[in-house]
Amino acid sequence: MRRLATAVGLGAGAVALPALSGTAEAKAGDTMRTGAKNTAGDAQTALQSDGSAPSLRIENTRSKSGPAGGEVDLISPQLQLGGPVPSADRPQLPDVRNLPAGAIGAAGGALLLGADLGLGQAIPVQVHTSAMSNLLVPIPPASATVFDSAAMSADQRAAFPVGSFDDSGRVAPGTRVPVSLRPLINSEKFAQPAAACCGFTVGAADYSGAVSVHASADLPGDVTVCSYTVLPKEATANGQPIAFAATASATVPLDAVDALWVSVSTATHLKIQVAAVVLPDPSALVEPAQPSPGLSPAARRTALQRQALREMVGGLPNGK
């Protein structure tokens, strides 16, 4: 633990003073000391208490003004877990075979908590952090439509790969069309891919077909997310095909640059609306640099925190 922290052993009735410094050689069961490093080899570190009061309280009152126009305070970590000892190139996981309720196991980027779920034993539960979690965020209806071939101008269609549309402006069959969600999210700083909860609406097709999504422009494989039916002209009274409008929804993965790759099996107009996005971290949301003045005090506070985090990670390399 860092010198800035104050550790109070409430259950044991002992106070660890920050005046102690340097590196300590500790054995299993020794007192934990602030301002020093306890090296216990392969031994597990555990906190025990005979009472109902917390065994450990960690406080940090030192702060400084930070990003977001100086409206967000930054504090040093109250508790830092040291990294595991490297083990060649093998992946690492916490040893949770005997993890008691309330204990924390950390290794290889995974953090697990022993939680008693009332099953007669402690069950390891993953702690959701920004490194290993996802957040479902609803999208305002005003921003939901990310693609609508029927409403596109010629200039807008020209921004897509050649062959994406037929002469009437419908999505052409057999071509993977990228639909960027960057107006809504930017997850490039995180290793985990984002996903989108989408509604697909098709119409004006001449033949029945399906809408599929893909992992990228060239990776093999596809997933059908919407099927549509067209009554052929041979079976209609006026000799014209009748396309039945079809709508379906699906949660689909995005690529490394937050794009959805979609294709159709027959030419049709396609509209895609996003109801929600699945993010690795809330700071991946695309928001104004300054929160809207209409936000409540609590909403403004969280918006400033997201903006501050975006500024802090802005200089880091992309995670994907």
Rank of each mutant, 00 (worst) to 15 (best):
M1N: 07
M1P: 07
R3W: 12
L4W: 10
A5S: 08
A12C: 00
A12L: 00
A14T: 03
A14S: 06
V15A: 02
S21W: 05
A28Q: 07
A40E: 14
A40L: 15
A43K: 15
A43Q: 15
S49Q: 13
D50P: 12
P54N: 13
R57A: 11
E59V: 12
N60W: 13
T61G: 13
R62I: 15
S65V: 13
E71A: 15
D73C: 12
D73H: 12
D73V: 13
L74W: 15
L79T: 14
L81P: 12
G82T: 15
P84R: 11
V85G: 13
A101D: 04
G102K: 00
G102C: 01
A103N: 00
G105W: 00
A106W: 01
L112E: 00
D116M: 08
Q121P: 10
T129P: 04
S130W: 05
L136H: 07
P138V: 03
P140T: 02
A144K: 04
F147D: 00
D148E: 08
A154E: 11
F165H: 02
D166K: 10
D167Y: 14
R170A: 11
P173N: 06
R176Q: 14
R176K: 13
P183H: 10
I185M: 10
N186K: 13
S187F: 10
E188P: 09
A194R: 02
G199W: 07
A204W: 06
A204T: 09
Y207I: 07
S208A: 07
V211F: 01
A217N: 11
V223P: 01
C226Q: 02
S227L: 11
G239H: 07
G239N: 07
Q240I: 10
A243P: 12
S249H: 03
T251G: 05
V252T: 04
A256I: 01
D258Y: 00
A267F: 00
V274I: 01
V277D: 02
L279W: 06
P280L: 06
D281H: 02
L285S: 09
V286A: 11
V286K: 12
P288N: 07
P288D: 06
R300H: 06
R306A: 03
A308F: 03
R310T: 03
R310C: 03
V313F: 02
G314C: 09
L316R: 03
P317S: 05
P317R: 06
P317Y: 05
P317F: 05
G319S: 08
